[in-house]
Amino acid sequence: MELGLFLAVLGAGLAAGFAGAGSAIGVGIAGRSAAGVVTQEPSMFSKVLILQLLPGTQGIYGLLIGFIVLSQVGILGGEIPSLSKGLIYFAACMPMAIGGFLSGISQGQCSSSAIGLVAKRPDQFGKAMIFPAMVETYAILALLISILSIFGIPASI
């Protein structure tokens, strides 16, 4: 059995799965708030939709990491890794899995509050965007470390 390949695929799956789950929860929470605002004021749809979508990016980042790993370990391309290389792939995926999951949920809650802000003060949309966008920083940092780790794995191991 190719344990190295298994670990690499497990890592890719966790990165895509957990980051996706974080986004799903986040977009879900923000979606409830968005639905509430649109029930009262249908003209707010486009504004609250953007805020609802902000927590959705973690899922895309997770997908990206998963895709890169799969394209290097012999599933979509590249070579089947050794056990130690597989372990490194697994470790490299963890920042995205954990960072994506937690930041997705947190960003969703923040978006919900921002949607409340827009409901009360539609003219403050620009500021309302900034608060949930701050949470995005940490999803991007997690993505960055995962990408640097994956691309930095020495070929000789």
């Binding site: 929470i29 409830r32 509430g36 605002v37 009262q40 919900s112 409340g116 802000l117 409901a119 009360k120």
Partner: peptide, 18 residues
């Protein structure tokens, strides 16, 4: 059941304007 009240509170924020 939505225990977070996210929908209700968001609706309310607009109603509070009145």
């Amino acid at each position: 059941v939505d225990k977070s009240y996210a929908y209700a509170v968001a609706r309310l924020r607009h109603a509070e304007l009145k």
